[in-house]
Write a protein that binds this DNA or RNA. Structure first.
Lengths: 106, 106
DNA sequence: ACAATACGTTAGCCATCGCTAACGCATTTG
DNA sequence: CAAATGCGTTAGCGATGGCTAACGTATTGT
């Protein structure tokens, strides 16, 4: 049970999840959006599946991947747990300060 | 300019950011919360600094690290950009389905 | 049956990562 | 002044990561 956040952090896998957000896709379809081999995409999908973020069903000779909502929910909760109230506060203060600076532009 | 999300994903660095959320801390103070060497922590802090997530000021012979609010804000925006409306919808549906199942418990 | 398609799997390469051990540099303390 | 403290830096090691090339396996089309 690998760390979902760690699995989702890799740039290629992030894009894969975003592509799958619009609906189920085949491996070749997904691979066509990347400069790397289909094999590489297949391995990335394997990592995502192992982390519980995607599932796949076989349909004829194609394998169709889709997002696993429950896995994504646990990813969501883990990121929410990271953004503690203190961190949120810091970010909010930074945003307020930035807008103050902007309003001082000459 | 390394990928902020990738830099923040590493477990030790995540905890470092959470520790720093409660306020500025010295390197030794931070290192005391981990099973690894102070050198390792120092290098992790270097990665976080390079990603713009933390800053440090020298105070006597101690170096005090704190969260860089603007860097954390960009991390925040990048995670928000990841959670597209489609992904949010999937997670929300999963939560609704889960509660439906729970209410069917015997 | 045979070729083509849509995959997964594996070996192997090279880069990166996290880490420790050892050292060096400034700063404070005695 | 010398010793101690608080750090950064570096070399080097083992492990992991992402990738390609090559091959194996179902499944479909002709």
């Amino acid at each position: 049970m690998p760390d979902v956040l760690y699995a989702a952090a890799e740039p290629t896998r992030r894009r894969l999840l975003q592509l799958l957000a619009s609906g189920p896709r085949t491996v070749s379809d997904l691979a066509s959006h990347f400069p790397v081999t289909r094999s590489a995409i297949s391995q990335h999908l394997g990592v995502l599946a192992e982390a519980g973020l995607v599932v796949n069903r076989k349909e004829g000779r194609r394998r169709i991947y889709s997002v696993d909502p429950s896995g994504m929910a646990s990813l969501r909760s883990e990121t929410d747990r990271f953004w503690s109230s203190e961190l949120d506060q810091l970010v909010a203060d930074a945003a307020a300060l930035a807008s103050t600076i902007r309003s001082n532009d000459s």
